[in-house]
Structure formats: C-alpha cells, structure tokens
Simulated scan of single mutants.
Amino acid sequence: MDRFHQMNPFAKRDSHSASSVVWYKILTLASWLLSVIVTVYYTFEPPHDGKHHRGTIWHQNRDHHSGFTLNPIITSIYWIVLFVLQLGYISHLFSSKTESVNAACAVGSHFILNNLLHFGFVMLFVRSHFVWGEVLLLVNFANLTSLYFRHNAYARFIHLPAVSGPLAWTFVAVYWNGAIMVPHQNSLVARIFANIFVWSILAYGGFFIVLYKDYTMGFNLSVLSASLGVAQFFRQVVALQWIFAFTIMAVLFLLTVVVAVPAWTGRQVPWGGTAERREPDAERAPLLAE
C-alpha cells in the first residue's frame, strides 16, 4: 500500500520531492497552454477535418439551440478571467516559498487531468461528437469533485482557479452539452426537462455556500446562470427558462454576498462558524472553514 501511495499521482501529500516539483511545473504549464490554445483557437476557427458537422465553439452553441444555450460574451469573459487566475496559480509552483509550492503541487495532478479533459472535450465538441464530449465532461466532473472534497481548504489562489472555477463550469457544461446531445432539444418535453433541471444549479451552488461557506462557487455559478439567462432571453422572450436562470443568479449572488462579506471582515456568517480563518498573510489565509 505504501508503494501504491507513492506511485499514485492523486494521493494526498504534505510535501513533494524536488524532482516531482519539476515535473509538476512542466506538466502543469504544458497542459494549461494546451487547454488555452485549443479553446482560443476554436473560439474563432472551426476544425477543417472530419465528416461531421463542424463549427467554432460558439457556432455550435448557436446552431444547436436548447434550454441550456449560453451567452458567448459572458461565458468567454468567465473563461478569460479563469485562465488568467490559473496562470497566477501556476506561478506559485515557481515560488521561493516551500509552503506555496507544496500547496500548488497538492492539487497539481487533478489540475493537469482537468486541462487534458477540457482539451479533449473542446476537440470533440467542435466536431459534433457530443456523446463522447459528455463522457469526458462526466469524467472531469468526477475528477474535480474528488479534488474539491479532498482539497477544499486551500488558499484562495489555489481554490478559485484550480478547484471551484473549473468545477462550476464543468457542472454547467454537463447540461449545456447534454442538452445538445439529446435529439429534439427544442421539443416541449425537452423544454420542460430544462425548466426542471435548471434549478439544480441553485441546489448545487447552495450546497457549497451553506455547508462549506464557499462564496467562490456561489459567484462562479451566478455568473454562468447570468450567461444562461441572457442567452435564453434573446432566444425566446416568452419563456420560463430565462426567468428561472435570472432568479437562480440573483439568489446565488445574494448568498455569495452574505458569505463573502463576513469572510473579508472576519465576522461570523449568519448560520454559524467563520467563513475563513484569518492569518497575517492574507494570500495564505484559507478560504473555507474546517
């Protein structure tokens, strides 16, 4: 078992050897660049291979209307900010502080896998391989969920870009791609199911806000709910989906503020406990309560 633990890249460790840190630096940066490049490229250029219907990411989003169609502008801003924050996370692998390096390495294997799965999903999505794309999303959802529950008390510079940001997106993307994947996505039955399942975003975000006092998940999901609401409004004004999406956005944002303000000021949240432990070094102050 000890040998398996040493060989398992996803095992939880408090420290890392010099050689493993070097590999984390190389693989994390390389996988992040792969994820960024393919996302940016296929935002503007469609693939030129294969026999299936092909298109850019947002052409696919536009051509396959569903109850989970997203707004390109808001979602793109979400990803731009996330990529920039992830670059900040990667920079801590090169820090002179051992604590920062070990903390960044602790989530490194999951982060690398997330980047590779995101790369694979984009490659499949723009080529209309939605079923296989959904499989990769579900695998990544399991990967990021495992990461969250095993490493949910790291500092903000790790938690937001490497954990909650990708997890919130993957949760919404499962519905986004899943709605495209099913046949007759604009039928009455599909719309009814969309009207029901959209509330899972509120339930999911509320779970993390209430139990873990994680305001980053609340904010991430509120932004993605806004993207959904705007897209659905311009798609069909007389419909329930955009009303539901904006309601979810408002509730999540309100809950986020209720938790975030005490976290920033060191006060108690309304349902007990502190939202974060305060330390002299604000950057290293853990985000979540134990």
Results as ranks from 00 to 15, higher is better:
residue 170 T to K: 12
residue 170 T to N: 13
residue 170 T to D: 09
residue 170 T to Y: 01
residue 171 F to K: 00
residue 172 V to F: 11
residue 173 A to L: 12
residue 173 A to I: 08
residue 174 V to F: 06
residue 174 V to I: 15
residue 174 V to K: 02
residue 175 Y to G: 10
residue 176 W to T: 12
residue 177 N to L: 13
residue 177 N to G: 09
residue 178 G to I: 01
residue 178 G to V: 10
residue 178 G to R: 04
residue 178 G to T: 10
residue 179 A to N: 05
residue 179 A to G: 14
residue 181 M to D: 11
residue 181 M to N: 14
residue 182 V to T: 11
residue 183 P to C: 06
residue 183 P to W: 08
residue 183 P to V: 02
residue 184 H to T: 12
residue 184 H to Y: 08
residue 184 H to Q: 14
residue 185 Q to D: 07
residue 185 Q to C: 07
residue 186 N to A: 15
residue 188 L to C: 02
residue 188 L to Y: 15
residue 188 L to I: 09
residue 189 V to A: 08
residue 189 V to T: 15
residue 189 V to R: 14
residue 190 A to G: 03
residue 191 R to D: 03
residue 191 R to N: 15
residue 191 R to Q: 14
residue 192 I to E: 10
residue 192 I to V: 15
residue 193 F to T: 05
residue 193 F to R: 14
residue 195 N to L: 09
residue 196 I to V: 13
residue 196 I to E: 08
residue 197 F to P: 03
residue 197 F to E: 03
residue 197 F to Q: 02
residue 197 F to D: 11
residue 198 V to E: 06
residue 198 V to M: 05
residue 200 S to E: 08
residue 200 S to Q: 08
residue 200 S to L: 04
residue 201 I to W: 05
residue 201 I to P: 04
residue 202 L to H: 03
residue 202 L to N: 12
residue 202 L to F: 14
residue 203 A to P: 08
residue 203 A to I: 11
residue 203 A to C: 10
residue 203 A to S: 08
residue 205 G to W: 01
residue 206 G to I: 09
residue 206 G to T: 10
residue 206 G to A: 09
residue 206 G to W: 03
residue 207 F to W: 06
residue 207 F to P: 04
residue 208 F to P: 00
residue 208 F to Y: 02
residue 209 I to L: 03
residue 209 I to P: 04
residue 210 V to M: 10
residue 210 V to K: 02
residue 211 L to T: 00
residue 211 L to G: 01
residue 212 Y to T: 01
residue 212 Y to A: 11
residue 212 Y to R: 03
residue 213 K to C: 06
residue 214 D to N: 04
residue 214 D to R: 07
residue 214 D to I: 00
residue 214 D to F: 03
residue 216 T to D: 03
residue 216 T to M: 04
residue 217 M to K: 08
residue 217 M to F: 06
residue 218 G to M: 03
residue 218 G to S: 06
residue 219 F to D: 00
residue 220 N to Q: 06
residue 220 N to Y: 01
residue 221 L to P: 02
residue 221 L to R: 01
residue 222 S to L: 00
